[in-house]
């Protein structure tokens, strides 16, 4: 039970309190570019959630088994090659590895979805190539790395926590971009001072939304208390 509460808190934290867009400012390019119509925004959100989950699974596996200091696979290879039993630390390669993990998982997802789910591909396939340079994905990988490398074994994140973080982040991104698209559809009809048209007003609206999302602060500790009270 404690375990599920912890997972829930990570997910809620990533989706609402520390929303990727409004708190960490990652994923702003698609947030500005693809938020003109609700259906497109929703497709983009789905695509990001999908890719972010796959990329963070991959990056957790790579970080845990290959990159972190003393990782099992790299240590085994090193000792098999006769390098002795010293601790192998490949964290310097992590950024390179992540960016290629992201690029290849985007390619893979695109091929898979195109072959097996043509309707799904029609709805968000066009966004997939754009996602490679979406900072939200790399950001999720880096957050996971922060909780695996240089952390005591007991506090180290498992694949479950990594996955919940990325799913929460993806859902948070979808919420943000869909709300924004809904507001922008209405903005089309309103009279905006000329210099503010386009991205300018989008930033102002995003600022107000970010202010609103600050209201979620503290929801996680309140939830934790609620569950603890329910348990006892």
């Amino acid at each position: 039970m404690e375990y599920f509460v912890n997972l829930l808190l990570i997910g809620v934290g990533a989706a609402l309190i520390h929303n990727f867009v409004f708190y960490y400012f990652v994923g702003l390019c698609p947030f500005l570019g693809v938020s003109k119509r609700i259906d497109m925004a929703f497709g983009m959100g789905l695509a990001v959630t999908f890719v972010i989950s796959i990329a963070s699974t991959l990056s957790w596996l790579l970080t845990y088994y290959v990159l972190r200091p003393g990782a099992p696979v790299s240590s085994w290879i090193w000792s098999t090659l006769g390098g002795g039993s010293g601790e192998v630390n490949l964290t310097i390669l992590s950024y390179l590895v992540y960016i290629f993990a992201i690029a290849s998982s985007v390619q893979f997802v695109e091929m898979y979805v195109r072959k097996f789910f043509p309707p799904l591909y029609k709805s968000f396939g066009i966004f997939l190539p754009l996602i490679t340079t979406n900072c939200a994905i790399l950001f999720a990988c880096l957050e996971i790395m922060k909780n695996v490398v240089g952390v005591e074994p007991a506090a180290m994140w498992g694949l479950d926590q990594a996955l919940v973080l990325s799913l929460g982040g993806g859902v948070g991104f979808t919420i943000a971009i869909v709300i924004m698209a809904g507001i922008r559809e209405e903005l089309e009809l309103s009279e905006i001072p000329e210099p503010m048209r386009g991205p300018g007003i989008v930033f102002i609206v995003a600022g107000i939304l970010a202010l609103a999302f600050m209201g979620f602060a503290g929801v996680d500790s309140a939830l934790a208390r609620l569950f603890k009270a329910g348990m006892s």
Binding site: F203, G207, A210, M214
Partner: peptide, 9 residues
């Protein structure tokens, strides 16, 4: 974060 968006806009 809201300040960042508002100032940028």
């Amino acid at each position: 974060s809201p300040g960042a968006f508002l100032v940028m806009g």
